[in-house]
């Protein structure tokens, strides 16, 4: 069951109790608190949406994560289960991941001499790698956050939307965003903004730079050879000019 896992969050089922926040903080040894936004000590946070709903925020665990693709040392990587995890010991602290994430997820420890990038890791170390479900999903009292195989979760999500089209917005957030994410969300019909990032490209982002980078192994020898060619051409031209001049003089 560990291939392509993910979480499904259903806004209409969320009670706003914050049990997921506390479970997450406990799992990661952070001081228990009511999160007010994502920050270095809050990997998830539940915010009130106008109209009686609540919205959870956490890393989307992209299928082709921009954060992992930009990291110069692969301190961020995606596991075979689909979790995007981080290794502080090799991280440079360049913060390109923070800059590149289309969902504005990674947070930085700005006030530490040994700063780390902080974000939800899908409880990979402690749970998912051992076949257990993440802390937040295990404590949710109303089934608003459930863990499972991504394909299965997507089926469930679409089923719910189909059954109650007047209740749900007809879109699974994360089905296509950033090329598809392992964490997905379905939202209740309300005019209020969920606080989820809008306008995220529906294609994976890494190919935008990949197209460039793939040209480099070709560009290097081509440019090098061209320069060498110019070197010999112009040298020859100069030599001929010099010879002619000398002939004239001599």
């Amino acid at each position: 069951m560990t291939m392509g896992c993910g979480l499904l969050f259903d806004q209409t089922l969320c009670l706003g109790c914050g049990a997921c926040e506390l479970a997450c903080q406990k799992e990661h040894g952070q001081p228990p608190h009511k999160a007010v936004k994502l920050d270095a000590d809050s990997f998830t946070f539940v915010g009130r949406v106008e109209g009686g709903y609540f919205q959870r925020h956490l890393c989307m665990h992209c299928g082709d994560p921009a954060c992992a693709s930009v990291c110069p040392v692969s301190a961020l990587r995606i596991t075979k289960e689909g979790a995007v995890v981080y290794d502080a010991s090799i991280c440079l602290g360049c913060r390109y991941c923070v800059m590149a994430c289309p969902f504005l997820i990674p947070k930085y420890e700005w006030n530490s001499p040994f700063p780390r990038v902080r974000k939800c890791d899908l409880c990979y170390e402690g749970r998912v790698s051992k076949g257990e479900e993440p802390a937040c999903a295990s404590v949710c009292p109303n089934g608003a956050t459930v863990f499972g195989e991504r394909a299965e979760l997507l089926r469930i999500a679409k089923g719910r939307i189909q059954r109650e089209p007047e209740k749900y917005i007809d879109e699974v957030y994360g089905e296509y965003q950033a090329g598809g994410t392992s964490v997905m969300m379905i939202l209740g019909k309300t005019t209020a903004a969920s606080g989820l990032r809008e306008g995220v490209l529906l294609d994976a982002l890494p190919p935008l730079t990949g197209r460039m980078l793939r040209k480099i192994p070709v560009a290097v020898p081509v440019v090098g050879l061209m320069l060498a060619g110019f070197y010999f051409l112009t040298k020859r031209k100069n030599d001929i000019a010099k010879e002619e001049e000398e002939e004239k003089n001599g």
Binding site: S69, S74, I90, G93, M212
Partner: peptide, 25 residues
């Protein structure tokens, strides 16, 4: 500027050929 400058040499040995910043480094 970087948070963990003692790791600045790492791009030499920890490759990520999908990263522009790796190439820049």
């Amino acid at each position: 500027d970087v948070g963990r400058p003692w790791n600045l040499w790492r791009p030499l040995f920890y490759w990520n050929e999908r990263s522009v910043l790796w190439e820049v480094g």
